[in-house]
Lab assay of single mutants.
Amino acid sequence: KWEEIAERLREEFNINPEEAREAVEKAGGNEEEARRIVKK
């Protein structure tokens, strides 16, 4: 599940997989929260 979210974030925000994974981890697997983290 987290991998899927990280993949979507990576494609959408054009970030590297590591950044995407970190955002999802910080968000506890919550996609909306992960998006907010990435946008900062």
Score class of each variant (00 low, 15 high):
5 I>A: 04
22 E>Q: 14
10 R>K: 07
21 R>S: 08
1 K>F: 12
10 R>E: 06
29 G>K: 02
25 E>Q: 11
11 E>R: 15
21 R>M: 14
32 E>H: 09
6 A>E: 09
1 K>I: 10
4 E>R: 13
28 G>A: 10
13 F>G: 03
9 L>E: 00
17 P>M: 15
20 A>F: 02
1 K>E: 12
35 R>D: 01
3 E>K: 13
36 R>F: 05
25 E>T: 11
4 E>P: 05
10 R>P: 01
5 I>L: 13
14 N>V: 05
5 I>W: 02
2 W>K: 05
20 A>C: 04
17 P>E: 14
3 E>Q: 13
15 I>G: 03
32 E>R: 10
30 N>R: 06
16 N>D: 14
20 A>E: 01
27 A>E: 01
24 V>Y: 04
27 A>D: 00
10 R>D: 02
4 E>K: 11
2 W>Q: 04
9 L>Y: 00
5 I>Q: 03
7 E>G: 09
24 V>P: 00
17 P>H: 13
36 R>H: 08
27 A>T: 06
36 R>A: 09
6 A>N: 02
13 F>I: 03
37 I>L: 13
31 E>Q: 05
18 E>D: 12
29 G>D: 01
11 E>G: 09
10 R>M: 13
23 A>H: 03
28 G>E: 08
16 N>T: 15
32 E>S: 11
34 A>P: 00
35 R>I: 08
38 V>R: 02
2 W>P: 05
13 F>R: 02
22 E>G: 09
24 V>M: 06
31 E>V: 07
9 L>T: 01
32 E>Y: 09
3 E>F: 13
29 G>L: 03
33 E>G: 06
15 I>F: 02
19 E>Q: 13
21 R>T: 07
17 P>W: 15
6 A>L: 09
39 K>P: 03
35 R>A: 05
18 E>T: 10
8 R>P: 00
33 E>M: 11
26 K>E: 09
27 A>V: 04
1 K>R: 08
9 L>A: 00
38 V>Q: 03
29 G>Q: 02
22 E>A: 08
24 V>F: 03
9 L>V: 04
15 I>P: 03
39 K>M: 15
1 K>H: 10
16 N>H: 10
20 A>H: 00
26 K>N: 09
5 I>E: 02
39 K>L: 15
40 K>T: 13
23 A>G: 02
31 E>Y: 15
8 R>Q: 05
36 R>N: 13
33 E>R: 07
38 V>I: 15
35 R>P: 00
12 E>R: 04
15 I>T: 05
15 I>M: 07
11 E>V: 15
24 V>H: 00
16 N>A: 11
28 G>K: 12
13 F>D: 03
30 N>Y: 05
19 E>H: 08
2 W>A: 06
26 K>M: 13
12 E>K: 04
32 E>G: 07
23 A>C: 04
35 R>K: 08
39 K>I: 15
31 E>K: 04
21 R>C: 03
14 N>M: 10
31 E>N: 03
20 A>M: 02
14 N>Q: 10
26 K>R: 12
27 A>R: 00
18 E>M: 10
38 V>K: 01
22 E>I: 14
28 G>T: 06
40 K>S: 11
22 E>P: 01
30 N>A: 05
6 A>W: 09
19 E>W: 10
1 K>M: 12
23 A>P: 00
3 E>V: 11
6 A>V: 13
29 G>P: 01
18 E>I: 12
39 K>V: 14
3 E>H: 14
11 E>D: 12
18 E>A: 08
8 R>W: 05
38 V>E: 01
12 E>Q: 07
11 E>H: 14
8 R>V: 04
26 K>Y: 08
29 G>A: 02
37 I>Q: 07
37 I>V: 07
14 N>E: 06
5 I>H: 01
30 N>K: 06
34 A>I: 01
23 A>W: 04
6 A>K: 04
19 E>K: 07
34 A>T: 01
29 G>W: 04
12 E>C: 06
3 E>I: 10
1 K>Y: 12
30 N>S: 09
36 R>L: 10
21 R>G: 04
10 R>T: 09
37 I>M: 12
2 W>H: 06
11 E>I: 15
17 P>Y: 15
33 E>Q: 09
40 K>G: 14
16 N>R: 10
22 E>M: 15
36 R>D: 08
18 E>P: 04
15 I>Y: 01
40 K>A: 15
34 A>S: 04
18 E>H: 11
30 N>T: 03
1 K>G: 11
37 I>A: 08
13 F>A: 04
39 K>F: 11
35 R>W: 06
22 E>S: 13
36 R>M: 11
27 A>P: 00
28 G>V: 09
19 E>V: 13
37 I>K: 04
7 E>I: 12
9 L>F: 02
31 E>L: 14
34 A>Q: 00
22 E>Y: 11
30 N>F: 06
5 I>K: 02
23 A>L: 07
9 L>R: 00
40 K>P: 07
23 A>K: 01
11 E>C: 13
36 R>K: 11
26 K>S: 10
38 V>Y: 04
7 E>W: 12
11 E>L: 14
35 R>Q: 05
2 W>T: 06
9 L>Q: 00
7 E>A: 13
33 E>W: 08
21 R>L: 12
17 P>S: 12
8 R>N: 05
19 E>C: 09
19 E>M: 11
1 K>S: 13
11 E>P: 03
4 E>M: 12
24 V>T: 05
3 E>P: 07
32 E>W: 13
39 K>N: 12
13 F>Q: 03
8 R>T: 05
17 P>V: 13
8 R>D: 02
